[in-house]
Nucleic acid binder design. Structure first.
Length: 301
DNA sequence: CGTATTTGACCCGCGC
DNA sequence: GCGCGGGTCAAATACG
């Protein structure tokens, strides 16, 4: 993570529908070759397409190597090629690899357990790049800020949040891309063991985050449970985000006070299940974890 | 007064 | 071994 200065510009790819964040990199690139570094500039930004405001095409989930994810979270985002969609986000995820990489369990884990000499396996992570003016995007959970650090090569600080639920160890980091201040990079680490404290409302961006989050989680879980899946890196199940047409902007959506439930309704078939079905080769009932957190069971049927 | 945020210090891993 | 940078802690402060 000490070599992020040079961020290769993303090659704008003409994603179907013509939209943005379109840049896929090879796995080698993503893994930094042998460096294990993940450049956000290399992230397979999701080729979300904006059609009439709604986004179709889900950000591909990426299995990020430990060191890579650690390196990152962010900041490395190169300038996302013009985003034609007003709201777009990309997701990358990190496979947990709980037992195998105690070593990779750096900083975060070590920190909290080093005192006891116990290493904690790292939590799965996934990052979202969201174009928004709001730093801390609502995702339905309540977060408590526990730190903030200036980030090298970035004028924007990185904020650290922890889920307020004492039993939940989920953390998230929020920072703005130095390349594109309009882009907020949110990195989640861990999985909630409880439901949302409240549904996000008012902003469809919230849904994007929440939905992407859920999908990412599902994806991670699917992969985790299916050890044989060696490389389902890019998946882009179609997702229809409702109300985008009426809410061109990510923040505030005064004109589309669509209740969360409706959003979820529209989101069916949920991206998560789609992911699950694809990645976990037909296990529609992948655990409910995040999906459950975000989409009420009743809504998923 | 309880809770959340701010912020400087500290610890640790990694690269040189 | 040293320095740098990331991540976390915890006391102080702000806010409701």
């Amino acid at each position: 993570m000490r070599s992020m200065e040079e961020l290769p510009p993303l090659e704008p790819v003409d994603a179907s529908g013509g939209s943005s964040w379109a840049a896929f990199a090879s796995l080698e690139d993503l893994c930094g070759g042998g460096g294990g570094e993940l450049d956000w500039g290399h992230l397979p930004l999701c080729p979300t397409t904006a059609e009439g405001g709604s986004i179709s095409g889900f950000p591909p989930l990426l299995d990020v190597p430990e060191s890579a994810a650690a390196a990152t979270a962010g900041e490395r985002s190169s300038d996302p090629p013009a985003v034609s969609a007003d709201a777009a986000s990309s997701v990358s995820s990190e496979e947990p690899a709980p037992e195998s990489d105690e070593k990779a369990t750096n900083d975060t884990a070590n920190k909290s357990n080093s005192k006891k000499g116990i290493k904690r396996s790292r939590q799965p992570r996934f990052a979202f790049m969201t174009k928004s003016e709001i730093d801390h995007l609502e995702d339905g959970y309540k977060w408590r800020k526990y730190g903030q650090k200036a980030v090298k090569n970035s004028p924007f600080p990185r904020s650290y949040y922890r889920c307020t639920n004492s039993k939940c160890v989920v953390k998230k980091r929020v920072e703005r891309s130095s390349q594109d201040p309009a882009v907020v990079i949110t990195t989640y680490e861990g999985q909630h063991c409880h439901h949302t404290v409240s549904y996000p409302r008012g902003s469809s961006s919230h849904l994007h985050v929440a939905t992407a989050f859920a999908a990412a989680a599902q994806r991670l879980r699917a992969l985790s449970s299916d050890s044989t899946s060696s490389s389902p890196l890019y998946l882009s199940p179609p997702i229809q985000f409702p109300d985008q047409s009426s809410t061109p902007s990510l923040h505030a959506t005064p004109t589309s006070p669509v209740p969360p439930s409706e959003h979820h309704e529209h989101l069916r078939p949920s991206p998560a299940s789609t992911f699950a079905e694809r990645a976990a080769s037909g296990s529609p009932t992948v655990d409910e974890g995040l999906l459950g957190d975000i989409v009420p069971p009743a809504m998923r049927k």
